[in-house]
C-alpha cells in the first residue's frame, strides 16, 4: 500500500471529543481519492494530519513505506514532500505567478527552476501569466496556479482542500474536468476533500464518506463506472 493510515485519533486543543476517531484508510499509488462529508465531519482535519500541520493523538501514518507519524516519530510538514492546494489558494500576494511556483523548488539550479516553472505552466495552460500577480487573476486562474505551485516540486502526494468551494457553479464544472485531466496526466496520488457529491463523482476513483470523524463506508467507484458503461440506466449509488 502506498499510504496507510491506522487508528488515527485527533482532537483540537480546547475540546474533549475527538474530531477524528479511529480513522483508517489505505490508498494505492496513483489513486484519486475523494473524502466526502458535511462541514464539521473532520474531513479537512484528515488532510491537515496527513501533511503534518496537526499532530495526531494516536495512530500512525505511513507514506511510501516511510513512517510520517506514530507514537514516537513525527516528520515536520516541510520534510514530508506533500503538495497541498488550499481552500482559498493562499497564493503569496507579494510574489508573481512565477515566483509563487518557484517558491517550492529548493535545490534546483536557476535554469532548472525556470524550466520547471515553464513545464507546470504549460501543464495548466497558463504560460503567458508568469509575470502577473495573484490579485490580477480570476478565481479559476488562481486555483490553477495554486495547483501548479503544489505540483512543481513533484510531491509524492497531492492534497486538495475543497478545491471548488470558491468558484461559481458553471466555472466549477469546467474546472473540475480540467483538474481531473491535469492530475491524471501527472499520475500523482491525490486526495481531495469536498462536501459536494457531484465533485466526488466527477473526479474520484474512490469515494470515502466521513461522518463524525470516522471513515464510514468506502467503495470503489471504478467498478461501478465499469458497470455503468455496460448498463447506462444504472444510477450511481448514494453513499450515505
Amino acid at each position: 500500500m502506498f499510504i496507510q493510515i491506522k487508528d488515527l485519533c485527533f482532537c483540537y486543543g480546547n475540546t474533549k471529543n475527538n474530531t477524528i476517531q479511529n480513522f483508517n484508510l489505505e490508498i494505492e499509488q496513483g489513486e484519486i481519492i475523494s473524502i466526502l462529508g458535511e462541514s464539521g465531519s473532520g474531513k479537512s482535519t484528515v488532510l491537515r494530519l496527513l501533511c503534518g500541520l496537526e499532530t495526531p493523538r494516536q495512530g500512525s501514518i505511513t507514506i511510501n513505506g516511510e513512517v510520517m507519524t506514530d507514537h514516537r516519530r513525527f516528520v515536520l510538514p516541510e520534510k514530508r514532500g506533500i503538495g497541498m492546494v488550499f481552500q482559498d489558494y493562499a497564493l503569496f500576494p507579494h510574489m508573481t505567478v512565477a515566483e509563487n511556483i518557484q517558491f517550492g523548488l529548493k535545490g534546483y539550479s536557476r535554469r532548472a527552476k525556470k524550466q520547471r516553472v515553464q513545464e507546470v505552466l504549460e501543464l495548466i495552460n497558463m504560460t503567458s501569466y508568469a509575470k502577473r500577480y495573484p490579485h490580477e487573476l480570476s478565481g479559476g486562474q488562481q486555483q490553477r496556479i495554486a495547483l501548479a505551485r503544489a505540483l512543481a516540486p513533484k510531491p509524492s502526494l497531492l492534497l486538495l482542500d475543497e478545491p471548488f468551494s470558491n468558484l461559481d457553479a458553471d466555472l466549477q464544472i469546467k474546472i473540475r474536468s480540467e483538474l481531473k485531466d491535469i492530475i491524471k496526466k501527472t499520475g500523482i496520488t491525490s486526495i481531495f476533500v469536498t462536501h459536494d457529491r457531484e465533485d466526488s463523482k466527477a473526479i474520484a476513483d474512490r469515494i470515502i464518506t466521513m461522518r463524525d470523524g470516522a471513515a464510514y463506508d468506502w467503495e470503489s467507484i471504478c467498478t461501478i463506472r465499469e458497470e455503468q458503461q455496460k448498463r447506462p440506466d444504472l444510477e450511481l449509488v448514494d453513499m450515505k
Binding site: M84, A90, L91, F92
Partner: peptide, 25 residues
C-alpha cells in the same frame, strides 16, 4: 496562518518561511 502553511507544504522550514513570506506580509 494559511500562507505560512502553504510555504511549509512547499518545503520551507519555519525560519525560512518567516523571512520569505511572513515578514513581507
Amino acid at each position: 496562518n494559511k500562507y505560512t502553511e502553504a510555504s511549509r507544504m512547499l518545503g520551507m522550514n519555519l525560519t525560512k518561511t518567516f523571512f520569505k513570506v511572513d515578514l513581507r506580509m
